[in-house]
């Protein structure tokens, strides 16, 4: 069975995150404000080479760029 999310280059994890985000956004004011904090992710990473820290990048941005690159390849 071919899933629509797979065909569009998303991972299952990403698909779940998108679905959860839409659900959070469609809530009433009170529960929405509480819930939307759960969707935030601010992980950053840097590659260390020969004792020096490389560029500090946001994981979310790099993931999004990677997925856009791989979309429709499979």
């Amino acid at each position: 069975m071919a899933f629509a999310w797979k065909a569009s280059g998303l991972t299952y994890n990403r698909y779940l995150a998108v679905a959860a985000r839409v659900v959070r956004r469609s809530l009433k004011e009170q529960p929405r404000l509480q819930a939307e904090r759960r969707g935030e992710m601010e992980l950053r990473f840097a590659k260390w080479e020969s004792g020096k820290q490389g560029e500090n990048k946001s994981l979310a941005e790099v993931n999004a760029a990677d997925m856009a690159e791989h979309a429709g390849k499979e």
């Binding site: 779940l16 995150a17 679905a19 959860a20 659900v23 959070r24 956004r25 469609s26 809530l27 009433k28 004011e29 529960p31 929405r32 819930a35 759960r38």
Partner: peptide, 13 residues
């Protein structure tokens, strides 16, 4: 990941 009773959803939104 997320689950809410129907009352928590807003028709306007």
């Amino acid at each position: 990941v997320e689950g809410f009773p129907l009352d928590d959803f807003s028709a306007d939104v």
